[in-house]
Amino acid sequence: MDKILVGLKRVVDYNVRIRVKTDGSGVETDGVKMSINPFDEIALEEALRIRERGEASEVVVFSIGPSDAQQQLRTGLAMGADRAILVEAADAVDPLSAAKVITKLIEAESPELVILGKQAIDNDNNQTGQMVAALWDRPQATFASKVELADGKATVTREVDAGLETIEVDLPAVVTTDLRLNEPRYVKLPDIMKAKKKPLDTTPIADFGVAPDDAFEVSEYAPPPQRSKGVMVEDTAALVAALKDKGLI
């Protein structure tokens, strides 16, 4: 296989406790630690392992986002990606527009495999990979926990509500990652230095001729309803009594 294309979204770090702004206009992102979306890190790790097994020759990472997303792409290069593409967009990009941009990247790069995270942990949309597959008119293997490549096909085990589903798709195809696909590697200092020399091309999103979709207007951000603080019981007998009291057991 020639090439694998991997998407890296810049998101608020997994460990940050999110706060809604008091005026309801958004969530607080000033001064908050930003990272690669965890599912995208898994996507990159999988691509690197495929290349390291000799089943692909090049791993190209891209991001669609602000100029600062270069940091996440540099991290991706330090992990082992060969080169990076930043599609620079000052404003947030909706999933459909992102999918259209990715489809244009696919036209330009002709990858055999596109690996994306199943969802970004900011908007939790879980859409972009499926949309890319639809617009590209190619197979999708979402929520992957195992990917095997052979003879121009991918056999993918998927985490579904019922358990584990296995499907077979012809390449090229889109795979989206679930948590247990792999454990991403740690970046080593020398790799960070080497990554600085790897190519990172920036193109403004306007050059892709994709008009942002303005159909969804978010009028308010609110904190979730809080559950009221409950009671602590002293021992098992009190716990069982409380549950019997509520008619729950």
């Binding site: 406790r17 978010v218 904190p223």
Partner: peptide
């Protein structure tokens, strides 16, 4: 919900969409 349910957004969808 977004951000793992840490924020709830109210979204209006444009007419005709």
């Amino acid at each position: 919900p977004i951000y793992a349910g840490n924020a709830i957004t109210t979204v209006r969808v444009r007419d005709g969409y």
